[in-house]
Amino acid sequence: MADLGIEFVSTKILSEMNNNEATEYLLKVIKRGDMIVLDEKLDPEQEKELFKRTMELIDDDFTGIEISSIGDSETSWKNSIIKMLGGKTTGLTVIGSAKIIKKIKNEKDKINLLANISKKK
């Protein structure tokens, strides 16, 4: 039976990187077959970059990612003020390879995830 690694990452790590570096960091973990749990919601720009870079990397073996996040929209006025003051917003993001995540369902306040680790390389 294959093992499944889960990296619980503070977004503090990502905040010290630019968008490209953060995307590469996330995809490096995902491509080796592990999952990532972030303690915040990615902002729309980061999500967009992640989608784009994922598409560039897709081949016969790497078929993409599954991602789900909960928490207030980064563009909400409340979060904008918190971020402006250097604070941290609440939320959660789960990302993994599409090969191992069989099903992911976002119910706004919780995420249900079903992984099939037998498909892990």
Binding site: P44, E45, N106
Partner: peptide
């Protein structure tokens, strides 16, 4: 289908921003 997917959330988040 279930509309609350990350694809829809990301599209709307970027348009809203």
């Amino acid at each position: 289908e279930d509309p609350y997917t990350q694809v829809n959330i990301t599209i709307l988040g970027n348009l809203e921003a």
